[in-house]
């Protein structure tokens, strides 16, 4: 393995941070969900890199599970977005403050 493990960790960190920034900054719910996908992919890169580094296939199995959870998250999240859009005719996150104290 000619590429050191730390390179993968740095890449994963960059992608994860980008996702966090997207969740915090953007006001469009769809972009927020896309940023969550970015974060999930960053962790997946970590898992696969470690799996290769330790020669253990368990990390790839965990990526498989993370993928399942991502699919479930997308299905439920998009259903929620559609329900919200029906209720208020907008997907701007600033319009939804019912749970704000």
């Amino acid at each position: 393995m000619t590429v050191p493990l730390s390179y993968y960790l740095v890449l994963s960190g960059i992608v994860f941070l980008t996702g966090v920034i997207g969740v915090l900054l953007r006001r469009n719910i769809i972009i927020i969900l896309l940023s969550v996908e970015l974060m999930l992919n960053a962790t997946n890169i970590n898992f696969v890199a470690f799996s290769q580094y330790f020669h253990d296939v368990a990390g790839q199995v965990f990526v498989f599970f993370a993928l399942t959870v991502a699919a479930a998250e997308v299905a439920v999240g998009l259903a929620i977005i559609i329900a919200l859009y029906r209720a208020k005719s907008t997907i701007n996150i600033d319009e939804f403050q019912l749970l704000k104290w």
């Binding site: 890449l11 980008t18 920034i21 900054l25 972009i31 940023s35």
Partner: peptide, 12 residues
């Protein structure tokens, strides 16, 4: 890595 990082920034 470069394309992944650039595309991630573009997504946001």
């Amino acid at each position: 890595a470069f394309v992944i990082a650039a595309a991630a920034v573009l997504v946001v």
